[in-house]
Design a protein around this nucleic acid. Structure first.
Lengths: 198, 198
DNA sequence: ACGTCTCTTCAAGAAAATTTGAACGAACTG
DNA sequence: CAGTTCGTTCAAATTTTCTTGAAGAGACGT
């Protein structure tokens, strides 16, 4: 990945002095975004736009980051869908111009709302569903296995409680309200303390 | 991925009734973990252990989840490194037995501490470094470009502030203290208020 | 000390994802 | 209404990641 490395070639040596700093910052955000489950180029492109005083064209972005126009189009499209970048236009110009949404908080919130919250919700539903299946199976099982099923029930209800609490906490985050992680800690293992071996 | 689907074959039809529920729950956790940047099997294996009343062998895990022993070994090793699973042994037996760490809060905390915190820290350092490079370049740039550099400086310092605040908030989370997301919101765009759409 | 049983490591193969160039289509210009 | 200029989409190609079977290392019992 010649992202930062390939900066002093191409268009002669007319690279501005600050380009290096810009690319380093973009790469840092790219790593962050990639880690967070987005395309790495989304972070890089957003950062270039965020640092730029004016909106930029796809061509300028492709040139700056040494990407193909299709790569730019793809990531840019996704950024627009997430509301992280906006299209704008200029009187004379035919090209599309893109500008970064500058409120990082707004972006964070949107992602937690649209993505993380759904994810947790789905997990919570699945756990609840597994609990239901277990209840249903319980009477049809040998007394010997009933012990086992009962253990699973307790554990599953713990997982349910955890995910539901997680859901609530992320909800609070999205709402910008205070979050108390203690709520999660309290669910943990108040009674069964079987694991004290090692 | 025949994870849940492939449950009623293999070892005759002796699958217990609750196996289905167990596998569903394991898959839910697998999705969560995969989304969170871990191997998907880590979540699945951990869940099987978490739901099990006794510690299990690698063979039992491989059988339950229909995985090769090497896949189990790999994910299990990583789970042990993260402290999510502990090895235990039994008097007569030669095999290793594995038991889940049951405190989810403890696990969450450890991951945020070891992984997310470092990630943010590195990003923060890179932003700070980019700022430094910019300061250094500033005097060597045409007055025309100085405007540009100054804009970048403002934006970069915003990114720095955001990551540093993020670092602080994650630190609070790890410490189990209250978190105020408002700290992030306040950094956003106090002056330029160009984006007040949705 | 040898053979056996386990777990781990490794390299080859498979699967999944990213990337790219080209084709398509829309929108403007002359 | 042609001729351009852009932007997007698509499928092939590449890279990366995951999976697996086999070989290797360690430990135990005889």
């Amino acid at each position: 990945m010649p992202s930062v490395a390939a900066k002093q070639e191409e268009s002669s040596n007319s690279e501005p002095l600050w380009r290096e700093a810009e690319l380093h910052a973009a790469d840092a955000m790219g790593r962050l975004m990639e880690f967070w489950g987005f395309r790495r180029h989304m972070g890089r492109i957003w950062t270039i736009l965020y640092l730029s005083p004016e909106a930029m064209t796809t061509a300028a972005l492709a040139e700056t980051l040494q990407l193909s126009s299709s790569a730019v189009s793809l990531s840019l499209g996704e950024l627009v869908r997430w509301g992280a970048v906006r299209k704008t236009w200029r009187p004379g110009e035919r090209k599309d111009f893109y500008a970064a949404e500058t409120s990082v908080w707004k972006l964070l919130r949107r992602v937690y709302e649209r993505r993380e919250l759904n994810l947790i919700r789905e997990a919570a539903e699945t756990f609840a569903d597994a609990q239901r299946r277990l209840e249903e199976a319980r009477p049809r099982v040998t007394p010997n296995e009933r012990r086992r099923v009962d253990h699973m029930r307790k554990r599953l209800s713990r997982l349910s409680a955890l995910t539901k609490t997680g859901e609530r906490l992320v909800g609070l985050l999205v709402a910008g309200r205070m979050i108390d992680p203690g709520a999660l800690r309290e669910i943990d293992d108040p009674q069964f303390d079987e694991g004290r071996d090692s």
